[in-house]
Nucleic acid binder design. Structure first.
Lengths: 205, 205
DNA sequence: GGCTCCATAGGACTTTGGTCCCATGGCGGG
DNA sequence: CCCGCCATGGGACCAAAGTCCTATGGAGCC
């Protein structure tokens, strides 16, 4: 939530490009973390700092597209901006299909690059907010006991207490107790709230 | 809802390409509608038939990207597949950013094209189903009287009947009547149902 | 062996929600 | 001018949900 410094990760095997980008980005006020290879980047797992990644398409060993795939596999959330000297159409299409934010060709206008970075950071902030929100809901659900969890789901399905009782083989009274605790623990003030909370974790899980 | 025949619209200024594509697609079992220019395609507004569009990038007057923009402006929903002989990276990126489903280069493998068409049709079917669902909900809401509509929103916000009554300056009894009719007209069997229905129109509007 | 947490549940109410029947008054159309 | 729809609401209930207080029995923990 605190606006922890936004970091632009740069991955390029060409040292001069790397330094140039770093200089440009720093002078634009961003924190920069430069890596000379995808492997180096992957190893220093960028934890979960807010930011984005600028990645070269062609690199020895692990190329930009491979990196993109690997990051997707790991559930790594930062937006990717591809930057390449000899980009071809199929690569750019593959990158964009893979969710890349942009695909720029070197040499590229500093303004374009910085604009892309801003868009990427904005997208990251959005995605981050959405994730945080879902995580908060998830945390509240974690406070439920197994039974309460079951009851929460059935309540959100619109079942009556007596139906839930039948379903779970318990007395209606017991369901009322669980239900009351569910509302309390989830901080739901109304059934409408509960339904929305339940739906929100279901979408994510 | 009925699987009205899915149509592949082809827009290309090169007659031989146009004929070739038409033949290929027909032999693959698709209904095809070929147009020699973006303008021709736009004029015979393809109503709302299910399908997808294959469009050439470079065409005189209105190019593929222009067409994409115009279609977006009109809220035209079919997925676009770009097909081009001399595609460049910036164009492909722009197309993909604009929501294109794919961007293929001529000459391209028939298999690749047909696969892209299948994906496009699948995406269209999905989007179509989502739209139909939302439209159905919207239609049910249209059956509500103004007062019922207000009540529906407030109920979905989790307000008690008495709170709604205060809000609207009516007796609780009256709210109960409206509320009952709302549930009936919307076909909601429980408050949970109602909340979900209301949320669904709110997302769309 | 207490302690806490969980699940269970009864008793005794109160508050809400929902349903029937009935009634009034305005408004727009035939 | 009468009919239908809309909004309004009273009376009488019934059903469902929520709230206190109380209590039991098992599981896991220090």
């Amino acid at each position: 939530m605190t606006p922890m410094e936004r970091t632009v990760f740069v991955v390029d095997d060409d040292p001069s490009v790397l330094r140039g980008l770093e200089r440009l980005l720093r002078s634009a006020g961003y924190a920069v973390e430069a890596h000379a290879s995808a492997r180096a980047f992957l190893e220093r797992a960028p934890a979960d700092r807010p930011g984005c990644v600028i990645v070269d398409l062609r690199m020895p060993e692990i190329g930009g597209l491979d990196l993109q795939e690997e990051l997707a596999r790991r559930g790594f959330p930062l937006p990717l901006i591809f930057l390449t000297g000899h980009g071809d159409v199929p690569s750019s299409v593959r990158a964009m299909k893979g969710g890349a934010l942009d695909f720029l060709s070197k040499p590229c206008d500093d303004t374009d690059l910085l604009a892309a970075v801003e868009r990427a950071l904005a997208r990251d902030a959005e995605a981050r907010a959405a994730r945080a929100e879902k995580e908060a809901v998830r945390a509240r659900f974690a406070a439920l006991t197994p039974r309460e969890h079951e009851v929460a789901l059935l309540v959100a399905q619109g079942l009556l207490n007596k139906q839930i009782a039948a379903e779970l083989g318990a007395a209606e009274k017991t369901i009322k107790v669980h239900r009351g605790r569910v509302m309390e623990k989830l901080g739901a003030e109304s059934l409408a709230d509960l339904v929305r909370l339940v739906d929100r974790i279901r979408d994510t899980t």
